[in-house]
Design a protein around this nucleic acid. Structure first.
Length: 487
DNA sequence: GTAGGGTTAG
């Protein structure tokens, strides 16, 4: 158009080209188009500007998106929505929620696209307070519960710990599609209800529901993996290509390795990887990461060390692999090797992620980190936690020994401070509420010791404790956990 | 005939 025609691009042209760049994640091309649009005099067009906010956000350049947005003289609802969804999709749920409040202060009326992004942000951060407010707002203002909004609500309730409510919303939806069904299957799976996930998938196949896609299969296989449903998983995996003509991708392979490995079929998991390798299908580090998890779980230290070393050679910058190697050495009692790995990490400036836990009490959010003393009621929380722990010990709780704890530690550790963030959050929650179940959201995986402790705490406090960790949910009640210790 | 929204492993 530019080189061989006499027509000049209009604002319509630019928005379309910018959207294409965004869909292709072509930030460089997009930036070129941005310059071109400004030079051509469309820099202040509301449509063009909004599309640039989305472009930068979709390409992961949150700063760039913000800059364009801040410089807009008049900010449209779509521009606000682009920023909110951009932040949420880049993992900045808290930031997205702050921007949503600013949008309200500016006096603009949010629409259903705003709410979809805000609900996703709430799901991400565990913000059920705002999330259920949005749900009420939708109902009170008679907003139509379309598929995307409904699915966002299903996801919200699932990721905030209430599968029942998630299902309630699903049943209320007038129209459903494959994403809605997949969200529901994933809800059952992440709460350890593998059987229900498979039943729901079968229902989808039988009751002329939507045709499952590759994402659906990831959700079903993952549900099988976490519930020990090996036979069901194998059958689903076969059906995927036979009945639906879908070609399994790395994600599906990882689920299979994870499923076989968790169930203790280490040999089979291992040969599954080798068969893929022999078939020339690119073997991704993720497959070995899943295999490594199985080795640790089933205490196969020799194979674990071998795989961890292989992974470190493949991805030397990934701190997770070093932590795994160190943990396996610690569990097998090789203290010297542990220090060796740790020293190497420090030398190469590889830091573990810092863990934190969040709990909402009466619509206010409280964040705890390990050994945290920033909370005004710290003294009281620690004292209550001590009481809880000693009552747990009376009925059989044995803490994982200090020695192993320090070595297997997955969070930043301070010797003088003994409690993980999730223990502090749980103690705080029990202290501040009566009778109801408490829900804690953690950014990393829950540790073995806290997992054991919460089972006992659920008995001595006679409460249900729900913990969402990086991957899934744990419902502690009457001394046992919904994951059946099958992480 | 232009811009924004939901589901996925480790």
């Amino acid at each position: 158009m530019l080189s061989s025609s006499n027509v000049s691009p209009s604002n319509y042209t630019f928005t379309s080209v910018i959207k294409s760049s965004a869909d292709l994640c072509e930030l460089k091309i997009g930036k070129g188009v941005h310059c071109h649009a400004v030079v051509s005099g469309f820099g202040l067009d509301s449509y063009v500007q909004a599309s640039f906010v989305a472009l930068y956000a979709k390409c992961g350049d949150v700063g760039g998106a913000r800059k364009v947005f801040d410089e807009m003289p008049v900010k449209s609802v779509v521009a606000w929505n682009s920023l909110v969804s951009g932040l949420e999709q880049n993992g900045l749920g808290g930031e997205a929620i702050r921007v949503f409040y600013q949008m309200r202060e500016s006096g603009l009326e949010p629409d259903s696209a705003t709410f979809v992004s805000v609900l996703s942000a709430c799901a991400q951060t565990g913000g059920i307070g705002l999330g259920s407010w949005v749900h009420r707002y939708i109902v009170d203002n008679g907003l139509e519960l379309n598929v995307k909004l409904g699915t966002a609500l299903v996801n919200l309730y699932s990721r905030c710990g209430d599968v029942g409510k998630a299902r309630g919303v699903f049943d209320e939806m007038k129209e459903t599609n494959v994403a809605a069904w997949t969200a529901m299957i994933s809800a059952y799976g992440s709460h350890g209800c593998g059987k229900k996930a498979v039943e729901f998938f079968n229902k989808m196949e039988d009751d002329d529901g939507p045709i499952p896609n590759d994402v659906t299969f990831v959700a079903v296989l993952s549900a099988c993996a976490h519930a020990g449903l090996v036979e069901e998983g194998r059958s689903v995996y076969k059906r995927m290509s036979k009945r639906y003509g879908l070609v399994p991708r790395v994600e599906h392979h990882v689920c299979m390795v994870d499923m076989l490995g968790r169930a203790g079929f280490l040999d089979e998991a291992y040969s599954f990887i080798h068969e893929l390798d022999a078939a020339g299908k690119a073997t991704s580090p993720a497959l070995w990461t899943a295999m490594l998890g199985a080795c640790k779980m089933h205490r196969n230290y020799d194979l674990g060390v071998e795989i961890a070393k292989r992974l470190i050679a493949l991805e030397p910058e990934n701190p997770g692999h070093h932590v795994m190697l160190s943990n396996i050495y610690a569990l097998s009692g090789k203290t010297d090797e542990v220090s060796h790995v740790r020293d190497g990490m420090i030398k190469n400036n590889l830091r573990k992620q810092v863990g934190y836990s969040v709990i909402e009490v009466e619509k206010k959010t409280y964040m705890f980190s390990m050994g945290d003393e920033s909370h005004p009621e710290t003294g009281e929380i620690y004292k209550y936690l001590e009481t809880l722990m000693s009552r747990c010990k009376e009925i059989g709780y044995a803490p994982v020994s200090e020695e192993v704890m320090h070595q297997v530690e997955e969070e930043e550790k301070e010797y003088a401070l003994r409690y993980h963030s999730e223990k502090l959050a749980v103690a705080f929650g029990l202290l501040k509420t009566v009778d109801e179940a408490i829900t804690v959201v953690k950014n990393l995986r829950i540790c073995e010791d806290c997992h054991a402790a919460f089972k006992y705490i659920s008995i001595v406090s006679n409460r249900q404790i729900i913990v969402r960790d990086k991957l899934r949910f744990h419902h502690f009640q009457n001394g046992s956990c919904s994951c059946l210790d099958y992480w």
